[in-house]
Amino acid sequence: MAMKVKEVAELASISVRTLHHYDEIGLLTPDEVTSAGYRLYSDANLETLQQILFFRELDFSLKEIKSIITNPSFNREEALQMHRRILLEKRQRLDQMIATIDRSVLHMRGEIHMTTKEQFEGFDFSKNPYEQEARERWGDEAVEKTNQKLQGKSAQEQKGLSDEMNEIYTRLAALRHTDPASNEAQAGIAEWYAYLNNLGNYSPEAFRGLGQMYVDDERFTRNIDQFGEGLAMFMKDAMAVFADRKS
């Protein structure tokens, strides 16, 4: 039975405003909207919302979640199993942190002695353990393979590749206000395609997916836009045109 936005908000303990935002950014669009403009959510919509909230619990950004759940290879049951495993690991770490707090109180009272190492048991903010697994399963496998190949090169070779990459980005940044389908833009993006395939093996479709990741993943956007604001979006569009013409 279809549910109205207020009912879904109450069910999931989130705000109506949050659901509206998810709809606006294309993360969760209700299957039906009445003639009066009321959003109606289907059972499939609720399943998607559950996935979104699980990912949010694991500290994923909305852009990252959208990239993952819209990936054609995304498998809901597989994701739930992964969620369960990581949440169990998270619970174990939280239990350890609670134990550290309890011991810290006793240490402050002088009842026990804690080493400096023991005072920080359970803390680990170095990485999101789920993120890497999700990226490898549904995200940027090609990027990881490229990074591995780079690591196998000498320092001098890596510097040469880094300089070449910066030069390509700089040339593309100068073109970012032009039509992504123009001959100049496509010539520039062809350089980028050749550069990447010198390091890895990118099909036109993988190249298109990488371009999409440039705008879906804030880390990519931030790094690329250092060469010029809007460069990531321009490259995404130009890479999509390039992929279409290659197909």
Score class of each variant (00 low, 15 high):
residue 3 M to N: 05
residue 7 E to D: 15
residue 11 L to Y: 15
residue 14 I to Y: 11
residue 16 V to M: 06
residue 19 L to G: 05
residue 20 H to Y: 13
residue 30 P to K: 11
residue 37 G to C: 11
residue 38 Y to T: 04
residue 39 R to H: 02
residue 44 A to G: 03
residue 44 A to Y: 02
residue 59 D to S: 15
residue 61 S to R: 00
residue 61 S to Q: 05
residue 62 L to M: 09
residue 67 S to F: 04
residue 67 S to M: 09
residue 69 I to Y: 13
residue 72 P to N: 07
residue 75 N to T: 00
residue 75 N to W: 06
residue 76 R to I: 04
residue 78 E to F: 04
residue 78 E to Q: 15
residue 88 L to K: 12
residue 99 A to S: 13
residue 101 I to D: 14
residue 102 D to E: 14
residue 106 L to S: 14
residue 115 T to G: 15
residue 117 K to E: 15
residue 118 E to M: 07
residue 118 E to T: 15
residue 123 F to N: 00
residue 132 Q to T: 12
residue 134 A to L: 07
residue 137 R to F: 03
residue 137 R to V: 01
residue 141 E to I: 07
residue 143 V to A: 09
residue 147 N to V: 07
residue 150 L to K: 06
residue 167 E to Y: 09
residue 173 A to W: 06
residue 174 A to S: 14
residue 174 A to Y: 15
residue 180 P to I: 01
residue 186 Q to H: 08
residue 189 I to Q: 05
residue 190 A to W: 06
residue 191 E to W: 09
residue 191 E to Q: 14
residue 192 W to D: 02
residue 195 Y to Q: 11
residue 199 L to R: 07
residue 202 Y to V: 03
residue 204 P to G: 01
residue 205 E to M: 05
residue 209 G to E: 07
residue 210 L to V: 07
residue 216 D to C: 01
residue 219 R to Q: 13
residue 225 D to V: 13
residue 227 F to C: 00
residue 231 L to A: 07
residue 235 M to D: 00
residue 240 A to R: 06
